[in-house]
């Protein structure tokens, strides 16, 4: 029975995958309608999955609080903030100035701060890179970083001089020729890999949806 159920899920996944896929190549009214309906179901399911994820998040942190595990005060703060925001949004509406203020004065600064931390972490990572990994790729990486940085922003002196302009051109050449070309190649490879992954699911070889 278990094996049979797995085949049913696989058949459903393959069928819906083929329906959506053909919509990119075959433009028929009937098929377009089916595809649109399936896509709408997918959108609804994604939103429902977001709710599931939030429920999972809540349950994990509640269990952590209950077991008094390490870091449970932070879990308590998280659960409290979640509940408060949910209640405010339910009572006052998601477009109320209160909710917008929560986003504007709490979430947005916190995320901006994390982005600032990203700058520090990246800088530190580059500073330590040669100590951790000493090969030709790393040397090329560092030289490229240096040239691009020099050609991106202003200088303390002679900011609009010939050398600064030259560095700007070098930076544009590096980023728009070498980096863009390499990125295109990587993207082609990524596209092939993603296609293979999708095909394995459509052929039933990979079943990430479980049994």
């Amino acid at each position: 029975m278990r094996g049979g159920l797995g085949l049913v899920w696989a058949a459903i996944a393959i069928a819906f995958g083929l329906i959506v896929l053909q919509g990119y190549f075959i433009d028929l009214e009937v098929l377009r309608g089916v595809r649109t309906m399936v896509l709408q179901w997918a959108v609804v399911l994604a939103a429902a999955a977001l709710l599931l994820g939030v429920a999972n998040l809540l349950a994990v942190h509640l269990s952590k609080i209950g077991a008094q595990e390490k870091g449970w005060p932070y879990s308590a703060v998280l659960v409290g903030a979640l509940v408060v925001t949910l209640l405010v949004g339910l009572f006052f509406g998601e477009e109320s100035p209160l909710v917008l203020s929560v986003f504007q004065y709490i979430q947005q600064p916190v995320e901006s701060t994390l982005a600032g931390l990203l700058a520090i972490s990246l800088t530190l990572g580059i500073v330590r890179l040669l100590s951790r990994r000493r090969d030709m790729r790393t040397y090329i990486f560092l030289i490229t970083v240096f040239i691009v940085l020099l050609g991106t922003g202003p200088w303390l002196i002679a900011s609009n001089g010939g050398l600064h302009q030259l560095m700007g051109e070098a930076r544009a050449w590096l980023s728009q020729v070498w980096a863009a070309g390499a990125a295109r190649g990587l993207l082609l490879g990524v596209a092939l890999g993603a296609t293979a992954t999708g095909l394995r699911i459509l052929l039933g070889a990979d079943r990430p949806y479980g049994d």
């Binding site: 399911l45 994604a46 429902a48 999955a49 977001l50 709710l51 599931l52 994820g53 939030v54 999972n56 990430p208 949806y209 479980g210």
Partner: peptide, 12 residues
């Protein structure tokens, strides 16, 4: 960082 991915990972 996504609910659907979390559900799929539980299943897997």
């Amino acid at each position: 960082g996504d609910g659907a991915v979390a559900a799929a990972s539980q299943d897997a």
